[in-house]
């Protein structure tokens, strides 16, 4: 369980990035962070992963974040990375190159934390199958295309099965089947998932909670329904391209009037973008 209490972050030039955020992420929650600015969602991700004070040393940070009732910055690196894993958007960084095959590279994540070889083999084969990259198993990670590298990088992080998995912009280098495969993995994931992505409607089928960062302020919605409702009733002036696009499209196709009701909106959303909870 991650508790964020009165968290504020002001950047080195004095302009606020996040102001007075308080929310709780429970175990097995699937949280989507929606933001128009990439920077603020990345900062929130870093804060939740406990690395903000190192990645942005000049930012002024107030408030506190607790992981299982311990302040997240006081937890030692090796202990923290066992339970909270932050996946960078840049997949090039995630491949260490220590091993000369993709299989070995993914297995390295488990070797380092001392998992038995038999278990490693089973788990690596399983995740390769899930992400549909079995054919890459014996290739050299340095000779992969960008998309393939990203899938390998995701596999090498997800395979560690941390309690909290924070994905920053995972759809950046993924194709449609890649996103579908990742969604299928995340659906059955036993643990908390936090996704920050500028393409929120990809993850809308997965998430049960939405954190919207708008003008440094954070608003939390406990279901897609309330979020759509808020959008429709203009409670928050959210101008996220995909949400608004979808909303306007729905309004036109269904010939709904401006005072859209979320009960009308949801079945149509289901039809357009797949299953919504």
């Amino acid at each position: 369980m991650i508790q964020v209490k009165k968290f504020s972050c002001i950047d080195e030039f004095g302009s606020p990035v996040i102001v007075d955020a308080s929310f709780t992420v429970h175990n097995t929650d699937r949280v989507a962070i929606l933001s128009r600015s990439q920077e603020s969602s990345t900062i929130l991700c870093h804060a939740l992963a406990g690395i903000l004070h190192r990645t942005h040393p000049l930012h002024k940070i107030e408030g506190s974040i607790f992981y299982n009732d311990r302040s997240i910055e006081e937890i030692d690196s090796h202990e923290r990375t066992n339970s909270i894993v932050y996946v960078l958007p840049n997949s090039d960084m995630l491949i260490s190159g220590v091993k000369d095959t993709v299989f070995g590279e993914i297995a390295l994540s488990l070797e380092l934390i001392g998992v038995e070889p038999n278990v490693i083999r089973a788990r690596v084969s399983h995740i390769l199958q899930q992400l549909d990259i079995e054919r890459l198993a014996d290739r050299d990670p340095d000779n992969l295309s960008g998309g393939e590298r990203h899938k390998v990088a995701l596999a090498s992080m997800i395979i560690r099965r941390p309690d909290v998995l924070i994905l920053d912009n995972p759809s950046m280098f993924l194709d449609v089947t890649g996103v579908t495969n990742l969604l299928n993995i995340l659906r059955n994931y036993e643990g908390t998932i936090i996704i920050a992505d500028p393409n929120p409607y990809i993850w809308s089928g997965l998430s049960n909670r939405f954190i919207v960062i708008e003008n440094e302020h954070i608003e939390v919605f406990n279901s897609a329904k309330t979020l759509i409702g808020a959008l429709g009733n203009q409670i928050i002036p959210l101008e996220l391209p995909s949400w608004t696009g979808l909303y306007l499209k729905l309004r036109d196709t269904l010939e709904l009037n401006d005072e859209i009701d979320s009960t009308h909106c949801l079945p149509a959303l289901r039809a357009v973008s797949g299953a919504l909870p």
């Binding site: 990375t81 996946v87 260490s96 390295l108 001392g114 038995e116 490693i120 992080m157 560690r160």
Partner: peptide
């Protein structure tokens, strides 16, 4: 760090 390069557990070899 996130890939576990700081892990203190006894390593295994595939």
């Amino acid at each position: 760090e996130m890939r576990g390069f700081t892990a203190t557990a006894q390593r295994t070899a595939l």
